[in-house]
């Protein structure tokens, strides 16, 4: 797997003295959706922040498009073609929806192309066109998430990092947003690294998955295979294994422990 567009090699990142990720490696192939699953505090967001340069790893390297990008400023990393859709959306609340999109295209100069991309984004998220002049702070949570994704798209990135797009959204909206994520991947060939707590929808959207527990990757496989694994079924999808006696075996452990 040497032709991966984004390669993370053995990174270790700390919050002060506390180690958040302990040697994580992963690959993102061009044109694919890769997901990282994990519970609260597993270090999912930290991985994305380390990749986009907000946090600096103590060890290890991040190679994007053949270039080492770890320990660089986030605005520089972004200009290399890596867009980050942050957790909790983080839109600019007092700017209009349109201006938010324009900020997404801040690093670009080609006016015509930008205008075309606004049209493209509006075709994926028609609601944003209606709300074009409203301050982003007045949008609903789902609309803000759509705006955050669109804003990242406006930069025409090579890879998008998506941090918990399902956070705080109703199940119907989650479905809607993931359907659009999948469409963007298929129709635009957008490469994505998706971090998610909602394992079910993430595994059904992505091509390849990593499972992260307290800062370590404990399992990696194609999502089709992951969906078949007992541990994933039980601990991430909540499907209970009714044993021979028709009762749940409460002593059962995860196999990787």
């Amino acid at each position: 797997m040497s032709d991966a567009i984004l390669k993370v090699r053995n990174i270790e990142t700390y919050y002060g003295p506390i180690v958040a990720i302990r040697g994580v490696s992963l690959d993102v192939q061009e044109g694919s959706i890769v997901t990282v699953l994990g519970a609260n505090g597993a270090g999912k967001t930290t991985i994305l922040k380390t990749i986009s340069g907000v946090m600096d790893p103590q060890k290890g390297s991040v190679i994007f498009d053949g270039q080492e990008i770890q320990k660089q400023d986030p605005d520089w990393v972004m200009r290399q073609g890596l867009s980050h859709v942050p957790e909790g959306r983080e839109v600019f609340p007092f700017l209009s929806v349109y201006d938010n999109l324009m900020m997404g295209a801040y690093t670009r100069k080609d006016r015509d192309e930008i205008a075309r991309d606004v049209e493209l984004v509006n075709s994926y998220f028609p609601i944003l066109k209606e709300r074009s002049d409203q301050p982003a702070g007045q949008l609903s949570g789902g609309e803000q998430q759509m705006l955050a994704i669109s804003r990242a798209l406006m930069a025409r990135p090579k890879v998008m990092l998506l941090d918990e797009p399902s956070l705080g959204l109703s199940p119907r909206l989650v479905k809607e947003i993931f359907a659009i994520i999948k469409r963007l991947n298929v129709e635009q060939g957008m490469t994505m690294l998706l971090v998610e707590q909602n394992a079910n929808i993430a595994l059904h959207t992505a091509d390849f998955g990593y499972v992260l527990e307290v800062g370590r990757i404990v399992m990696e496989d194609t999502t089709a295979n992951l969906l078949e694994k007992d541990d994933i079924k039980e601990f991430y999808l909540g499907m209970q294994d009714h044993g021979v006696r028709g009762k749940r075996r409460w002593k059962k452990r995860k196999t990787w422990r």
Partner: peptide, 20 residues
């Protein structure tokens, strides 16, 4: 507009590639 953006959300401005 980028100045407004940076004052409203510094982190997101970094993610947009604005040299904050």
């Amino acid at each position: 507009v980028a100045m407004q953006a940076s004052s409203q959300n510094q982190l997101a401005s970094y993610y947009m590639g604005i040299p904050v």
